[in-house]
Nucleic acid binder design. Structure first.
Lengths: 185, 185
DNA sequence: TGGGTCATGTAACCTGTTACATGATTAG
DNA sequence: CTAATCATGTAACAGGTTACATGACCCA
């Protein structure tokens, strides 16, 4: 569902091959929605069948040929429909497998649980460093108005990551304190 | 994957029917991992086939009979393996379809985008109220040590929801300010 | 000559969703 | 009489993951 519209949105900026779309995904949308290249090829195929995209072969002498996809009017319509349609309940739901583990941690010994949370904190800390770097790379001063208009929304997704990982760190800290506190009773 | 272990974890507390597990899920794990009852029945079935569970029929005269599942030694082993095994990268990843929309919002007009974020903020605000209520329902004073040991971890998942929705609200507020600011340039 | 990048894909599988079927009992 | 609740499930489909296949070119 969402992967499809991610591809469609990128193709709305300009035509691309599946291979290139995968690279673009890796450095942007993959930060909040994961995809495999095999899935990208499949989605592009179905979207072409459904008339959302057209494709042509770009011949290359030194490298393998590329299959370049372009968005159609129908595709644009579908993209707009998805963007406009007031987001659904599903997009609000938390989906977090780590919390299932936390839920059942009562069986384990507290020391191990503290270690688990410290590990969790550490990983969020690393993710935070990365995302702050990405966030800092948006140089609005060097952009024209057109570029800027797009970029502020791109940056927003990075800022979400920043807020999110910071929140996870704060939560982990408090949960570690809770466990320690419980151990001393 | 995660749904399976959610069920297994609950069955580790005591035997239950699929129908009851669904009700328990609805009031706990569904807050961070969604399941359908049809999926629960399927997972229970496969886990029984794999020897993780056993089942027997509990006959009822006034209501339909229940198929009651109990965890086996093998099942316990699998649960522990999953709980112990240091969580994988996948459990760290953000998966958020709303951010895909945000990413492509540059094409829309700013007023509509502000409305979208205000709607998002509102829904998070409602979710926050709900989760704060749930969080407040943990009455540790009335619990014995055994109950408490479980409950602090249950509460942690609610606290995560609390932190999460508050973070989303803060983010939305800042993003609305960003859009307004950009409009006045 | 071995590994990396470029480039496209298929097959099998697992997870999750939607819709439907059945049938008894109970409350309004 | 109707709707809800109790209770278990199946079938079809959509979405996503893992593993594998192919083959040329380039660099060390």
């Amino acid at each position: 569902m969402a992967s499809k519209y991610g591809l469609l949105g990128l193709l709305n900026y300009g035509e691309q091959s599946g291979y290139d779309l995968n690279r673009i995904f890796t450095h942007s949308i993959n930060n909040f929605w994961h995809t495999q290249i095999s899935q990208i090829y499949k989605e592009l195929n179905t979207m072409e069948k459904d008339g959302w995209l057209t494709s042509h072969i770009a011949y290359q002498s030194d490298k393998p040929n590329r299959k370049v996809y372009a968005i159609t009017a129908k595709g644009k319509e579908e993209l707009d429909k998805w963007l406009d349609n007031d987001f659904v309940e599903k997009e609000m739901q938390i989906r977090n497998a780590f919390l299932i583990k936390v839920f059942f941690l009562g069986e384990n010994n507290p020391e191990d649980n503290i270690a688990l949370f410290e590990n969790y904190r550490q990983r969020n800390s690393e993710a935070l460093q990365k995302i702050i770097m990405i966030e800092g790379m948006f140089a609005f001063d060097e952009m024209d108005k057109e570029q800027r208009r797009m970029s502020i929304y791109h940056k927003m997704t990075a800022t979400f990551g920043h807020y999110y990982h910071q929140m996870c760190i704060d939560w982990a800290d408090e949960m570690i304190a809770t466990i320690r506190n419980e151990m001393n009773i």
